[in-house]
Amino acid sequence: MSSIQSIATDLGVGVGLRTVHYGHVLAHWPAVDLFEVLTDNYLDTGGRPLHVLDRVAARYPVVMHGVSLSIGSTDLLDRAYVRRVKALADRTRARMVSDHVCWTGVAGRNLHDLLPLPYDEQTLAHVVARIRIVQDLLERPLFLENPSTYLAFTHSSMPEWEFLARMCDEADCGLLIDVNNVYVSSVNCGFDPVEYLEAVPWERVGYFHMAGHTDVGTHLIDTHSDHALPGVWALHELATRLSGGRTTIYEWDADIPPFDVLLAEAMKARHGRPLTDSAPLRAEAVHG
């Protein structure tokens, strides 16, 4: 299996491929470095989505991003699902395969949400053991994304960044750092996003996510429905500096704009943005 370091090269700036943009992409083959595709949208179809994916993967590097691995669930690992992910990764020659540090359901049910895990020794051992199985089945490293969270558990015994660092070390897996999630969770859970990023094991990081979020007054929601705020771009710049540069993917999933608007937003990652007073690294404690 290839090492994380050999895979986590800077592929440039890309966007999440969404159905509404299929026509534009196939007609114009836009100048974007790579696409991220939502794994689960292509696992159970032999129709147009898979046909489009094949054409896109023939022209661009592709990374795959899933939402249903449920690495933290206490249900049995769905090995059949992992094998289907591997088949798709082989078909698209995916540069990286990612999912989330979360659980999505138990007792056979799937809530299709990225539910939070308590960060303690019990969870760490459970997740590490499952990552090892998944990586063996995938025959490639797995990159796991820090989730956006709306709650924290009373019996968590370590901060999220420590959990992620230990998880990567013990499971020998990779990380996908969603910079917007760091921002959202820092506001919702009251931690310092700079302290978070300074503790990330950068040699494990495959790529970054950027996205917009929504402030609903009492908390932030990771809606992927807008431009990223200056404060989130400032964190991206810090992450770029700390990591030495990584692939960045911009995700836009609700109120999706024309492709050119999405691309222009994503390309802010290429040009970089200066840190200014209007782009505070630490989210203001409007929410505590």
Binding site: Y150, L151, F153, G190, T218, H219, H287, G288
Partner: peptide, 17 residues
């Protein structure tokens, strides 16, 4: 089970999900 946040009680935080 759940910690309170500045503007949300534990059960409110569960309600978000």
């Amino acid at each position: 089970i759940v910690l309170p946040a500045a503007r949300l009680q534990p059960v409110d935080r569960l309600a978000v999900y």
